[in-house]
Design a protein around this nucleic acid. Structure first.
Lengths: 166, 166
DNA sequence: TCAAGATTGATGCAGCTGCATTTATTGGGC
DNA sequence: GCCCAATAAATGCAGCTGCATCAATCTTGA
C-alpha cells in the first residue's frame, strides 16, 4: 500500500459528515437540556447507573465499567467518585484482587436511574421518535453501523429499560 | 396540549439514538486523532478559519462568526483570542460600531486552513467515504436532516474546499 | 524466589467549557 | 437631550477533561 490516501471525499460524503456532526450536537443538546431543566445530573451518570443496575448483583469492577462505557480510565475513576459522593453507588472491597474494588449501585441509584429514564425516554421520543418512522430508524441504524465496521468491535445489542448514551 | 408526553420511544428509535451518539463519537475521535497526530490544532480552529477565509474580505464580526458556528458567545471570544495569539487572525477596529470589532484571517491562517483541509479531508474519506457509497451518504443526510426540521433553521449548504464541523 | 513488567485505580496540572457578570456602546421612546 | 433596555465583547470562577504520572498489587519467567 502507498503511504498517502490521495482520494478526497465526494461532496455527498462531506455533506453526510457535516450532518453527522451537526445534528448529533443539536439533538443531544436538546435532550440534555430537558434533563437539566428537570433537575437531573448529566447523562454520563445515567449511563453508569444503567450499567451498574444491569450487572449481576448490581456491582462491577471499575475496569469493567470503563470497558462497557468506552470512556478513559481517569474518567471512570472520577465518575465513580461523584456517584459515591452523592450516595448513588458504594465502594466494596475486592478480596480477590487487592488493587481493585467493586462498585455497587445503591437503592437511591436505582431509583434515580429509573426516574431519569422516564425523562430521558420522553426526550428521545420527542426529538427522535416523533420525527422518524420505525422503518427509517432501522435504516438510519444500518447506515450508521457501517461507519464502524472493521475498526471497533463494539457491543451493546439493544436496550430493554434504558439506553446507554455514548 | 397536555402537560406530559406519555409515548415512549420504540426499540428501533432507541437503537437509532444509541447509534447516533456512539458512532459520531467513534468517527469524530478517529478523525481528530489523525489531525492531532499530524500536529494540527483542534477542529474548532479549522472551522473558524474556514468561516473567516470564506468571508468577503477575510474578515467578520465576532457576532457573525458566532452565528455561523453556532457556538456560545464566550466560546467565540476565547477562540478568537487563541487565533490572534497564534498569529492566525488579527483584530481590526470597527468604525461603525465601537462596541464591536472585525477579525481578519492572516496569510498564516489561510495556509493553516488549507493544510488542515488536506489532512481533514483525507480523514473524512478514510473514516466515512470509504465505508459509504455516495447514494448511501445521500440517504444518511436525508435521514439526519429530518431530525432537525421544525426546531432549528440551520444553514450550511455544502462545502467547496472545506467542511465545517459542528 | 525474585526482579521486571503489566494492571488497577487515583491524582496533580493545564486547558477548556458553561454560567454569570461586567464594561462599553448603541438605539429607541418620551 | 436623557434615560433605559438591548447588544457586543470580555472575564472571573467553578467544574470537567485529557495527559502524564504515581502507588499498590499482581503475574510472569528465568
Amino acid at each position: 500500500m502507498g503511504v498517502a490516501m490521495k482520494r478526497r471525499p465526494s461532496s455527498e460524503v462531506t455533506a453526510a459528515w457535516i450532518r453527522l456532526m451537526r445534528i448529533r450536537s443539536r439533538v443531544l443538546d436538546a435532550v440534555e437540556l430537558e434533563l437539566k431543566k428537570a433537575g437531573f445530573p448529566p447523562l454520563a451518570w445515567y449511563d453508569a447507573l444503567l450499567e451498574l443496575s444491569r450487572a449481576p448483583s448490581g456491582e462491577m469492577r471499575p475496569v469493567e465499567l470503563e470497558r462497557q462505557m468506552l470512556i478513559p480510565q481517569y474518567s471512570t475513576s472520577r465518575l465513580i467518585e461523584r456517584l459515591v459522593d452523592e450516595g448513588l453507588a458504594a465502594r466494596r472491597e475486592c478480596k480477590i484482587d487487592k488493587r481493585g474494588q467493586f462498585v455497587e449501585i445503591t437503592e437511591a441509584g436505582r431509583e434515580l436511574q429509573k426516574k431519569m429514564w422516564s425523562a430521558y425516554s420522553a426526550a428521545i421520543e420527542k426529538h427522535v421518535g416523533s420525527k422518524l418512522s420505525d422503518a427509517d430508524a432501522v435504516r438510519l441504524c444500518g447506515l450508521l453501523d457501517r461507519l464502524v465496521c472493521s475498526c471497533d468491535e463494539a457491543q451493546a445489542p439493544v436496550a430493554r429499560d434504558g439506553a446507554p448514551t455514548r
